[in-house]
Design a binder for these strands. Structure first.
Lengths: 142, 142
DNA sequence: TATTGTTATACTCTATAACTATA
DNA sequence: TATAGTTATAGAGTATAACAATA
């Protein structure tokens, strides 16, 4: 096999991302939450209550898009909104007990295709994926 | 900093994928093509003419979805469809000269945000990303 | 004047379902 | 009966634009 060109490495990487998304979607049942929703839940658990504007900035999303994500989580009863005590414009978003319970159960690999398949990799490969995630997060800031 | 839990590594990885997609979209101008479209062009260049059904199987997409992608590429004049010589059901999709020219210019980092930022990484980090891509492609087959 | 949030609208990517034509 | 492809429709995940309330 001849060595891959840089260009074909990029194509293969792009290909992998596309496959991952479609595979993840196919594995997602109606009772599951989306990738963005799960990241938002994790953030709320880790950093405490926040506003849609703040979360939108953190995720590089438009506030309106984050608003839609939050509205969806609220509809599922996973988060609730409370008026900010002093700033009348803001609404604080926080986890409900149901949301906290879901976060706990998400570590359970059976619930989640991606968690499951990554858990089955050997440690080196897991580290490669996580390291790639770090690199990507840094890349995106440019 | 305490060591990350497996769960939070997964969240961070998921987060990175979401950021990558949004960043890529933001960097995409109206004259650019999508990730799926670029992968399809690369495949046609590498493996020669193919049908939508075959390409759909290769990309783990539904034939209808691939049909839409191909229709979009055809509208841009990058591919053309020719009836299969013996099987009247099939249409062979092949690159036009314009499509081949675009493929050539895609290696030009200035044209493409993702290519550009990856090109600027050091070799080790590039290898980590490409290795992660390989792992993902393998993961998806399960 | 800037910020938070909402509503309305639209686009991309992909899916499901129903169909026609051909094998 | 199975396969290739088309058309219609829908949903998720964004985006842009216009607006109201508050700071």
């Amino acid at each position: 096999m001849p060595p891959k060109t840089f260009d074909s490495e990029i194509v293969d990487f792009t290909h992998a991302i596309g496959l991952l998304l479609r595979r993840r979607r196919a594995a997602t049942g109606s009772e599951d939450i989306t990738m963005t929703e799960s990241v938002v839940l994790a953030r709320l658990e880790k950093d405490g209550p926040s506003t849609t504007a703040d979360m939108a900035r953190a995720e590089s999303m438009k506030p309106q898009s984050m608003g839609a994500t939050v509205a969806s989580l609220e509809e599922m009863g996973l988060v609730e909104r409370k008026p900010h005590p002093t700033d009348g414009r803001q609404m604080n978003i926080q986890l409900t007990s149901k949301g906290r319970a879901l976060r706990k159960s998400m570590g359970d690999a059976k619930r989640n295709w991606l968690t499951k398949v990554i858990a089955e990799l050997d440690k080196d490969e897991q580290q490669t994926l996580f390291k790639a995630g770090e690199i990507i997060r840094r890349l995106v800031e440019q």
